[in-house]
Amino acid sequence: MLRLHCPNCGVDCDETELSAGGEAHLTRFGPGSEDDDFESYLFMRKNPKGVHFERWRHVMGCGKWFHAARNTVSLRVYGTYPAQVTAPPEALLAEIDAVEPGWRNKEEA
């Protein structure tokens, strides 16, 4: 039973108040885009065993979407941040670096 902090309303939410929205920071590809890009946008996911940036909606609360950085193995939550950004905040990345050294290499491997 996960618990995530909703950065919008400030509440620590139970998983049952939330709905999961999958991988975060996808670039939407619309009409005219390459097949490859469109396929990636809709289907290809990092699905990492480790640090995952993902989308959540506080559906049984304020109704707002937000982002979370969470470990898919340990379920540790590094932080949550607003939905209206295209990349995780630098400060959060630095925090993850501190507790999961080398996670970025793993991601690029």
């Binding site: 709905s19 929205g21 909606r57 979407w65 939905a83």
Partner: peptide, 13 residues
């Protein structure tokens, strides 16, 4: 409604 909100909040904010 959720579909509309999703795009409004996360794509075309």
């Amino acid at each position: 409604h959720a579909h509309l909100e999703e795009f409004l909040q996360t794509e075309w904010w």
